[in-house]
Amino acid sequence: MRDRRAAEKSGRDGETRAALFLRAKGWRILDKRVRTPLGEIDLVAKRGNLVAFVEVKTRRTTDELDFAIDEHRLSRVAAAAEMLMPRYAGPGDDVRIDVVLIAPRAWPRHIENAWIG
């Protein structure tokens, strides 16, 4: 139980760090931890007419980040994002799936347009 709570806290801390990082890059955070029947979106962010549904992965080391995201996980994020698009994206908005990878003592790694489905 303790390991699960520690992982949950680490994930929430990573999402907070990712949100701060995106804000510093000019993004406005529209929502956090949005649940759908198809999966959860960690962050929904907007900059200009671009809406990004963002998957955040937090790992203990930067080496682990290389294996933090896979096609199966991204497909679930994409399905959830498709369900949520009408809520966050208006006419003329572009939409994409991004990933932000977080590890201690490392600058966040932002992978733009990570899902091309």
Rank of each mutant, 00 (worst) to 15 (best):
K32M: 08
M85F: 07
R76P: 12
D70Y: 12
A80R: 10
V77D: 10
P86S: 00
R17Q: 09
E55T: 03
H110E: 10
R73L: 10
H110L: 13
K32A: 08
L101Y: 07
R76F: 15
I29H: 11
N113P: 07
R35P: 01
E71L: 04
A80F: 08
K32F: 13
E82W: 15
A89T: 13
I116E: 11
V54N: 01
V77W: 08
A19V: 07
N113Q: 14
E112Q: 12
V99R: 00
L38G: 06
L50E: 09
L20Q: 13
A45Y: 09
N49Y: 15
A89V: 06
M85S: 12
T36F: 10
G26W: 07
A79F: 05
A45M: 07
A78E: 06
G39R: 02
D13P: 00
A19I: 13
N49K: 14
W107C: 08
R60A: 15
G26I: 05
D63Y: 15
L43V: 08
A89M: 04
V95K: 02
K9Q: 03
L101S: 03
R4H: 02
A19L: 03
A24Y: 10
A103H: 08
V54L: 01
R60K: 13
L38P: 01
A45Q: 06
L50Y: 08
F67L: 05
I111M: 11
V51Y: 11
R73F: 10
R60C: 08
V44P: 06
E15G: 01
V95M: 04
A106K: 04
V54I: 05
R109L: 13
L74Q: 09
E40Q: 10
V95W: 08
A106H: 07
V99Q: 02
R47E: 15
I102E: 00
H72F: 14
G11M: 00
E112M: 14
L50V: 06
F67A: 06
K57C: 01
A114L: 12
G90F: 13
E40N: 04
L38M: 06
I102L: 04
R23K: 12
E8Y: 07
A6H: 01
L38N: 03
P37N: 04
A80W: 07
R33L: 11
I102Y: 04
V34Y: 11
T16Y: 05
R35K: 10
R2V: 05
I116T: 09
L101D: 03
A103I: 12
W27L: 00
R5G: 01
E82V: 12
A19S: 14
D31N: 13
A89Y: 11
T16F: 09
R17F: 02
V100Y: 05
T16P: 00
A81G: 02
D94S: 11
L65V: 08
R96S: 00
P37E: 08
R73D: 11
R60I: 14
K9P: 02
H110Q: 04
A68Q: 06
R109A: 07
